[in-house]
């Protein structure tokens, strides 16, 4: 892993080198000896190559705020895995959770869908279930027509991630 932070549209690399008495970091290629003392959960004192600096920090998800030198610096924590394909486990594919019959299909191939949009209504075991888009994108394939039956695991809908414009 390589920790990366975005500040004013520039990406900066902070590479930990080792942690003994001090923490050795490489910040944008410059090696620094850093010590940190937290006064409380947000207020810390950083000693950088021997010089002390007071700062305050708070984090909200991947947004980091540092107050230092009379200014607030807003940084984005870049998730190295962030560009890993959208939408969790199965990507845009929705498979039948159990055997059943398609009652209604709300979309056709090429339709734009938002995450969570209902795309199909199925019925199995006397229970109707709405099939929802697992990610925003374009409908690539509709697995079954209304009235058609399907088995467990059959592909019901396939959505291509992204490329959806408002």
């Amino acid at each position: 892993m390589q920790p990366k932070y975005q500040l004013n549209k520039t990406t900066h690399l902070v590479t930990p080198v080792r942690r003994a008495d001090a923490i050795t970091l490489e910040v944008d290629g410059h090696r620094l000896d850093v010590r940190l003392h937290w006064h409380d959960g947000h207020h810390g004192e950083l000693t950088l190559n021997g010089a002390p600096y007071e700062f305050y920090a708070a984090q909200d998800g991947n947004k980091l705020f540092i107050h230092f030198g009379g200014r607030v610096w807003q940084l984005g924590v870049i998730d190295e895995f962030g560009d890993a394909g959208e939408g969790g486990a199965a990507g845009g594919r929705v498979r039948a959770p159990m055997p059943g019959v398609v009652v209604e299909v709300y979309v056709v191939e090429g339709d734009s869908v938002a995450e969570g949009d209902s795309v199909m209504l199925i019925e199995s075991m006397k229970l109707q279930t709405e099939i929802k888009a697992s990610l925003p994108g374009t409908v690539k394939a509709v697995g079954a027509e209304p009235g058609a039956s399907f088995d467990k695991g059959d592909l019901l809908i396939d959505i291509d991630a992204g490329e959806r414009r408002e």
Partner: peptide, 23 residues
């Protein structure tokens, strides 16, 4: 990936990319 994570159960997690797999 689809078959093994949804039908055979041989694999546990489906990853859209290598990065996601590592995550």
């Amino acid at each position: 990936a689809g078959m093994h994570t949804s039908i055979s159960g041989t694999c546990d997690y489906y990853a859209g990319s290598e990065r996601e797999a590592i995550a």
